[in-house]
Design a protein around this nucleic acid. Structure first.
Length: 520
RNA sequence: GGUCCCUUCGUCUAUCGGUUAGGACGAGAGAUUUUCAUUCUCUAAAGAGCGGUUCGAUUCCGCUAGGGACUACCA
């Protein structure tokens, strides 16, 4: 069994944008597959025709492309075990449903949803199983002729799995070990719906995983309760020998309070729960995406990987390659992880700082353009390098308080950088910084500095520094903060020489003269 | 309600019977500093509770409590 080629799959349902929890599940599948030189299959589980959302499939594909999670086969990737869209596999499922029916491991049920609901209301804790199926309208309680006639008349029916009660079903989970459930608590699950000629998840899932030779099923914990049913299905088909190994991942939980992570948490606290921006085709409602919110894909992947797994050492920043090497399902935690989006900011910052400024120059140029400012990529890159270690204020989603945090996104830069391109037009004498640093003698000092700088041929940082240092040395002046008032107007910005060099001699002198004239 | 899963600092986690219970985010303090930062140093901060097993339990077992998931002709 261990000789089998590793083949895993990520099989979302195209009912909307891909949730960040799904992204993590896919990531773990990917890391596992790559580590073992296996294949990663992309399957679309669209067996619920009512919940189909146009665009969802394309969205999911694009999201993985952005994140750098690659598939070897599946919808849009090709492969010889297709089709990979379940809605295109109707005939395959029909064949296997028949096999179960013929072997008396499943039966046909005619109970309508209304009848079922009525039953559930009248009987407390009603469950369609061995104890009740003989009271229902199905092929177990009706004659063959009756059943055939109903079907011939076009009656809508379902096929239910006939679960034998009283058996201990074992699920050997890589993360959780041996999980045992008594088959009596399982209900006779609907496997197939004649209404749309489609199977339900359970049947489609087992048939596809078997046919696609999936070796490991790595999925969310929400599937653990139905895992015994799946084991029983493999057995019913006689596929137990090649049944995949299971690994049920812990869930992603709300950052605060109880429950699993939802879109509402993101909206409230100010972080995305989807990889990409999503516009709901029905309502037009827009949901934030990591990509559009300025996250780097490597940061998102790294952050997500560590929510529920860690390599056992102290390394947190890892490339995809390192994660592939170190990943270990048995080191995944069993408990759900609260979604610590603040740490996500930190990851983004780390990756942002690791990139050369030139990587962000085009994006920064665009950012500036939105503010009505034309800048070159070179200017953008210089600005980034001068300002990337600053911090900004933000409103904490939880307390509503204004807090500070390091610059973690390039979009954080603008509020910090306006003075690079826009000269102060007035000065606020009540401003703490201005008040403290613009003194009686400041205008005269600045005039001196102005004249020194005006005499410079070379306006580079080094050249300025040499000239200014010499003056500082002999005069004993401390011109820095007053100079900052001139060029910035307030207490922010980079090193003064760097700023002056960026602005250029002409603009620097102009701003100084303006301040001298206006702050006298 | 029933079934299953889970439980170490505020958060993510390390520890695979013997540790001063480690790291990271976040928080606080100090140093550096040409504003604000960065950076550096330091500090606070945890084994849910109760019983066992054992020479010894965070680690193994049980119970309790708490949290989570599932309980559809959805996945």
């Amino acid at each position: 069994m261990s000789e089998r080629k590793v083949r895993v799959r990520f099989a979302p349902s195209p009912t909307g944008p891909l949730h960040i929890g799904g992204v993590r599940t896919a990531l773990y599948n990917y890391l596992f597959a790559r580590q073992h030189g296996g294949d990663m299959v992309f399957r679309i589980e669209d067996t619920d025709s009512n919940r189909f959302v146009p665009g969802a499939e394309a969205y999911i594909i694009e999201a993985f492309k952005w994140l750098g999670i690659e598939f070897d086969e599946g919808v849009s990737f090709g492969g010889d075990k297709g089709p990979y869209r379940q809605s295109e596999r109707r005939d395959i499922y029909k064949k296997y449903v028949k096999q179960l029916l013929d072997a008396d491991k499943a039966y046909i049920a005619f109970d309508t949803p209304e009848e079922l609901n009525a039953k559930r209301e009248s009987v407390a804790n009603f469950q369609y199983d061995a104890s009740t199926r003989l009271e229902m309208r199905n092929s177990l309680t009706m004659s063959k002729e009756e059943v055939d006639q109903l079907i011939a008349d076009g009656a809508v029916y379902t096929v239910r799995f006939k679960i034998e009660p009283g058996e201990e079903v074992h699920v050997n989970d890589i993360i959780r070990g041996d999980v045992v459930i008594n088959s009596s608590i399982l209900d006779d699950k609907v496997l197939y719906k004649s209404a749309d000629e489609l199977p339900t998840y359970h049947l489609a899932n087992i048939v596809d995983d078997h046919l696609m030779e999936i070796s490991h099923v790595i999925r969310g914990e929400e599937w653990l309760p139905s895992a015994p049913l799946h084991v029983l299905l493999y057995r019913a088909f006689g596929w137990e020998d090649t049944m995949p190994r299971f690994a049920h991942l812990p869930l992603l939980l709300k950052p605060t309070g109880n429950g699993k992570l939802s879109k509402r948490d993101g909206d409230k606290l100010g972080f995305p729960v989807f990889p990409l921006l999503w516009t709901d085709p029905a309502t037009g409602a827009i949901s934030h995406g990591y990509r559009e919110d300025g996250y780097l894909p490597e940061a998102v992947v790294n952050f997500l990987a560590l929510l529920g797994w860690n390599p056992g050492d102290d390394q947190e920043i890892m490339t995809m390659e390192e994660m592939i090497q170190k990943f270990d399902l048995s080191k995944c935690s069993k408990a759900g992880a609260k979604f610590d989006y603040v740490k996500g900011w930190w990851f983004n910052r780390e990756y942002m700082l690791a990139h050369p400024a030139s990587d962000f120059a085009p994006a920064i140029v665009n950012l500036l353009k939105e503010q009505g400012i034309e800048a070159t990529e070179e200017q953008a890159a210089q600005m980034f390098d001068m300002m990337k270690t600053k911090n900004i204020e933000y409103i904490d989603g939880q307390s509503g308080q204004t807090k500070k945090r390091n610059v973690s996104f390039i979009a954080d830069l603008w509020p910090l950088c306006d003075f690079f391109f826009v000269a102060p037009t007035s000065f606020n004498r009540e401003d703490k910084f201005v008040k403290k640093n613009w003194k009686e003698e400041s205008a005269a000092d600045m005039q001196e500095l102005h004249d020194i700088l005006a005499g410079l041929e070379d306006f580079s940082v080094e050249s300025q520094k040499a000239a200014v240092d010499a003056w500082v040395e002999t005069s004993g002046k401390k011109p820095w903060n007053a100079w900052r008032v001139c060029l910035v107007g307030e207490g922010k910005g980079p090193d003064m020489h760097e700023l002056a060099a960026f602005l250029g001699k002409e603009e620097t002198l102009r701003r100084m003269q303006f301040a001298i004239d206006n702050l006298k």
